[in-house]
Design a protein around this nucleic acid. Structure first.
Lengths: 140, 140
DNA sequence: CCTTGACTTAGAGTGTGCTCCAAGTTGTAT
DNA sequence: ATACAACTTGGAGCACACTCTAAGTCAAGG
């Protein structure tokens, strides 16, 4: 018999709140979850896998709307494999481009950190003859 | 004489909308911008530099609230250099950690892409004796 | 003088992604 | 039996970051 988890347990495992789990189901990101006789949700391993996938997509910056498309493709079964492949590949490209930019921005931040460190180190030395006037002190 | 730019020009240069430029000023991300006699904004080079900095921070996922703190530190002048350094270094750490995770997620996505490609390639071959039942077709 | 267009302000509205509430039901422990 | 906790639902509320509107001002061109 497959172990089925309560919403509370799934919240702990996935890091999503119970609110969010119900919300995701409501908006069709998950297919309707099994219910106990009481009506309480009982999540299966497959639900957990899918949720983990969603969590990763979300963490990579994918919008809820796109994840809904993704869920729709999943519902389409094997017939949508090509589309799903294209979907993931496009996502991959977007994420990589984003990371490329991040590296660029990080270099920019590093430059500022360096300038600030130099500025602070300079304070221990005798006063320089003339301090250059700095338009923007974050940029010095 | 320093060239001063209109809000329209700054919007083009920074990629921010005129709405957003006014908004950023309203909430204190920019110090009040110079005005022409007409009351129209006239942005200086220093304003542009600062805006570019903000755009980068934003693109790196920093919240408006944190950028406001940052603007506050800038207003504090030299006295806040140490804090600003700490601020940037913390930001740097956060961004790096985020990128580390992204690499991890990307590897996960790549695995799914591979599986889908294999699945599609397999369609050209004669039917396998038994197809394994796949709980989650995105994960096959 | 009159129109046009680029601007100004304060404040309202929007989209996203949750997050919470109220009212009710069920399961377990005492 | 009764208390209590864990759930259920539909729908309301919220934080964030814009985005837009309305009403008005100003400068230049015809």
């Amino acid at each position: 018999m497959e172990k089925e988890l309560t919403i509370q347990e799934v919240a702990q495992v996935t890091g999503l709140s119970e609110y969010t789990l119900r919300y995701y189901e409501r908006i069709g990101l998950l297919d309707p979850v099994d219910r106990a006789n009481s009506g309480h949700r009982r999540y299966r391993a497959a639900d957990l896998d899918w949720l983990q996938f969603l969590v990763y997509l979300r963490a990579m910056g994918m919008s809820i709307r796109q994840m809904q498309e993704c869920a729709e493709l999943k519902r389409g079964g094997d017939a949508t494999r090509r589309e799903r492949l294209a979907f993931l590949e496009e996502h991959r490209v977007r994420v990589q481009e984003q990371m490329r930019k991040m590296v660029e921005y990080l270099a920019y931040i590093d430059k500022k950190i360096d300038h600030l460190q130099e500025s602070l180190a300079g304070d221990d030395l005798p006063e320089p003859a003339e301090k250059p006037h700095l338009v923007n002190s974050f940029f010095s």
